[in-house]
């Protein structure tokens, strides 16, 4: 079977649509991030998000965010029923633009930290956290 140029193009488009699919499913988190950024571009880098690769219990997952020079850092959980987690606003006496907390994750998913820098630009980092479903209930 020979594949024409036109067919190849159609296949590629189909593949592109397929790769787009997961992003559509994450519309809620995109909306939440846009609400924080006002729709501005978000660069990669400049933010450090520390989260466990595997969380023993999704009820209490320790995370840490850090973005030197940030005014605020918002954290989102892409797979939670509501994606917002917390927003840290740093005041003049914050010695570093970093904070640690413990969060709930409804299942394996991406955690995303978006920092608003002093110049009004935005940067982000993300991490996938696997949430295990234990064998033994409570």
């Amino acid at each position: 079977m020979e594949i024409s140029r036109r067919e190849t193009l159609a296949l590629c488009l189909g593949a592109a649509v397929l790769t787009m699919m997961p992003f559509r499913a994450n519309a809620a988190v995109e909306d939440a991030i846009s609400a924080f950024t006002g729709g501005a571009d978000v660069a990669e880098g400049g933010v450090t998000l520390t989260a466990p690769e595997i969380a023993e219990n999704g009820n209490t997952v320790p995370i840490e965010v850090s973005a030197p020079g940030a005014v605020s850092i918002a954290v989102f959980a892409a797979g939670n029923p509501t994606p917002g987690v917390a927003t840290f606003n740093f005041g003049p006496l914050a010695a570093s633009q970093s904070a640690a907390t413990r969060i709930r994750l409804a299942g394996t998913q991406d955690v995303i930290a978006v920092a608003k820098m002093a110049d009004g630009s935005f940067a982000k980092a993300s991490a996938t956290v696997k949430v295990t479903i234990g064998g033994c209930g409570g």
Binding site: N57, N59, T60, G134, G135, G138
Partner: peptide, 30 residues
């Protein structure tokens, strides 16, 4: 492993223990 739980020896020297699942102190009998 029992599914995703790493089985311990079931020692109770740490009880009452704060269990992340319930987010509170859990008794031995519980």
């Amino acid at each position: 492993m029992i599914r995703a739980d790493h089985l311990s020896q079931g020692m109770i020297n740490g009880f009452p223990t704060y269990r992340l699942k319930q987010a509170k102190l859990i008794s031995r009998h519980n």
